[in-house]
Design a protein around this nucleic acid. Structure first.
Lengths: 178, 178
DNA sequence: CTTACCATGTAAGGCGTTACATGATTCA
DNA sequence: TGAATCATGTAACGCCTTACATGGTAAG
């Protein structure tokens, strides 16, 4: 125990909300979880097969569509496994910003280059912020009693707040360097 | 080109400031870079040997001490390599917060547990913030003309700002959940 | 004298990405 | 009819952590 693979837990978490295909799971990661998690097909598909082998999820072929479409459902064992993981303390929160790394070594490159890294960072944040704001709007407009609702809002709020702080920092940093 | 290993670049970056042993490099990662980067001995020592093999750094044994102590120095080629990396656009800024992941699935676990994850997160941030503030104070007290100085300050400022935002969010999140 | 810290390194194994390979369907 | 999207999967490889293994030195 206590050594749950993250990829398994994320997938089970998503399946605990709804039945999904591997492709849809990837989409969730690229949208709802994008701000704080991600995974590639190369880890999702093998993990799904593994979950089925271990009885934590089941696979059914969707017969309505002609194209191959494998829908995964969480089992009771899967739910137990998920709950067990959720009940344990968080083991790691990790931030790896190459931008900060390059900035830390800014003296080796000169101000123009450092500035351009900051500007690229700023542009990326400005680009992504609207998606978070949109997600928040959707959630607020569809006031739902679904228990998951408020948790979605909390994670989105985290992203919005930190992104805005990033932008403040970018403005300050640009001033310092010019 | 363009496929520089991060570990090599971080080490070269640190060596560009001063000569260091592997042990000292690890310490820098655990302090100055802690907020946005990390690495283990298991990656640092092999990387150092590799840098020497490629002529990007040199190794000298410190004869003043009796204990084995290998000091690494960056070469001109190493400096070029570092500059080349610094001149390229940032390839990845990544945030992986298990706390947010568990919170996203909060509905499966109930409010008490979600709250306890937030509180643990808050405690960790409150714990670490003083170190960042201390680092900032040191930097501000020792106003230096060294070109690296202001870049250090910028990265520290980033950490302080975002940590404060995290704490704000924690307060709000706790209110929402209770 | 013992604890903490200094100091170096290896081996096994886990985890995950990238690139590849394949093909159906929808929409303009 | 061609592009975008839906849809599944594998193989090679890279990168890194964990755990192990070893020993010196300083300070209380």
């Amino acid at each position: 125990m206590a050594n749950e693979k993250k990829i398994d837990c994320v997938i089970l978490g998503l399946l605990s909300h709804e039945e999904l295909t591997g492709y849809e799971i990837k989409k969730r990661m690229d949208t709802a979880l994008k701000y704080f998690w991600n995974a590639s097909y190369g880890s999702i598909y093998p993990a799904l097969s593994d979950l089925v082998d271990r009885g934590l999820a089941t696979r059914q072929e969707d017969v309505e569509t002609k194209r191959t479409k494998l829908v995964y459902t969480i089992t009771d064992e899967g739910r137990d496994y998920l709950k067990q993981w959720l009940s344990q303390p968080v083991s790691k929160d990790e931030l790896r910003y190459e931008t900060l790394l390059k900035l830390f070594f800014g003296a080796e490159q000169g101000e123009e280059q450092a500035l351009s890294h900051i500007e690229a960072f700023e542009a990326k944040i400005k680009d992504e912020l609207p998606y978070l704001l949109y997600a928040e709007k959707i959630l607020k407009d569809h006031q739902s009693d679904a228990p998951a609702h408020k948790y979605y809002l909390l994670t989105v709020a985290f992203g919005i707040k930190t992104y805005r702080t990033y932008l403040e920092w970018c403005a300050e940093a640009k001033q310092v360097l010019s």
